[in-house]
């Protein structure tokens, strides 16, 4: 990577998303699935994008890779990968970027892999097409990748089909495919959600190790906060199509400054600390067709005041470089202090 030729910000961030808006046309109206989302993924770092179903996290990821479903479209924003706006590229140019620059790991490896194609050939496809490798060289590269992601006996497994692999091994194949052309960033959509906890642990450690070895960055979409803590340095929390909080993982997850993040942390049963009863977030997620005015979380928020109910509530930078979209974030501090006192 020729880092000298780039400006300061681009040098530090492999991916920058600015004010991304994605809308879905549905029978009931226009769904603002992603509504003004901005974030960066630092070079060599891992950003977790967390939220519940319908928060827009998967739509954001799909917009970045340009694989939105047909009824969804980007209405504005920038997706800068090494300074190039992916949203302005045509299909041919995008295809040249996907693989060598940016790749993806899906949640369900069984449906993401081709069931009638040998595993080795699926891994070799990328190097053959994007790097112009000969058949023999691509096979060599594939065997090396299979060893790197911990697939035992790669020479024999090269000729196997996906159904002959376990769930964990299939996800390793997906990782090998994602790594095959040495991309700068891998987008991961809940890559361990379908796996058992012991296999999840193996895959997360493998991903962390590969990041360290090759310097590849990760954007990691999940609903599982402890998984984010295990793999990411930075985290962004999405609610109702918007970012409500972002910052370093330790700050945001252990010391949240947005009532939604606080609610998520409080409602999940804590492995280390057993409460008498869990505190669910009251109410249900907002409609993205007619979102509530003001802060989208205010109808479910204990801290809501009159000023939360009108006007936009953008992310505001707090000391320490973290950001929150809550006008009354100091109330989170009080709530956390009360929680600790109760222990």
């Amino acid at each position: 990577m020729n880092e000298q030729s780039m400006s300061g910000a681009q040098m530090n961030n492999v991916l920058e998303v600015n004010d991304l808006r994605v809308q879905i046309t549905s029978r009931r109206g226009l769904v603002r699935a992603v509504d003004g989302v901005s974030f960066e993924v630092p070079r060599g770092g891992a950003l977790g994008l967390v939220g519940e179903s319908g928060s827009g996290k998967s739509m954001t990821l799909r917009a970045v890779l340009g694989v939105l479903p047909p009824e969804a479209h980007v209405v504005s924003g920038q997706v800068l990968l090494d300074g190039t706006d992916l949203l302005t590229l045509n299909q041919a140019s995008l295809n040249r970027v996907r693989g060598p620059k940016i790749s993806m790991i899906f949640q369900e490896p069984m449906s993401a892999l081709n069931p009638v194609m040998r595993v080795g050939q699926q891994i070799a496809e990328g190097p053959r097409i994007h790097l112009g490798y000969s058949r023999a060289r691509a096979e060599e590269r594939t065997l090396e990748l299979m060893r790197r992601v911990g697939i035992p006996d790669p020479e024999r497994r090269y000729r196997a089909y996906p159904h002959e692999f376990s769930g964990g091994m299939r996800q390793r194949v997906m990782i090998a495919i994602a790594l095959a052309c040495e991309p700068e960033i891998i987008l991961c959509d809940e890559p361990t959600t379908a796996l058992d906890v012991t296999i999840q642990d193996q895959i997360l450690r493998l991903l962390a190790q590969l990041c360290q070895e090759s310097g590849v960055s990760l954007m990691f979409v999940t609903h599982d906060l402890p998984v984010v803590a295990q793999i990411c340095q930075q985290v962004a929390v999405m609610y109702g199509g918007q970012l409500v909080e972002r910052g370093a993982v330790r700050d945001v997850l252990l010391d949240p400054r947005h009532p939604y993040t606080l609610g998520l942390v409080r409602s999940a049963p804590d492995f280390e600390y057993v409460q008498d009863s869990l505190r669910p977030i009251p109410g249900s997620p907002p409609s993205l067709i007619t979102p509530p005015p003001g802060c989208r979380f205010h109808p479910r928020c204990d801290f809501a005041e009159d000023d939360c109910r009108t006007g936009e509530v953008p992310l505001r930078i707090l000391p320490g470089g973290r950001a929150t979209a809550c006008l009354h974030h100091e109330r989170c501090l009080e709530a956390l202090a009360a929680d600790r006192a109760a222990r």
């Binding site: 642990d201 998984v227 803590a229 280390e272």
Partner: peptide
Amino acid sequence: RGLLAAIPRLTEQAGETGPPAMAGD
């Protein structure tokens, strides 16, 4: 013991690359 050690924790340090809590399938 392996099952318990494999659970991700909120307080975890990111990027743990040591051997997994339990190997294999």
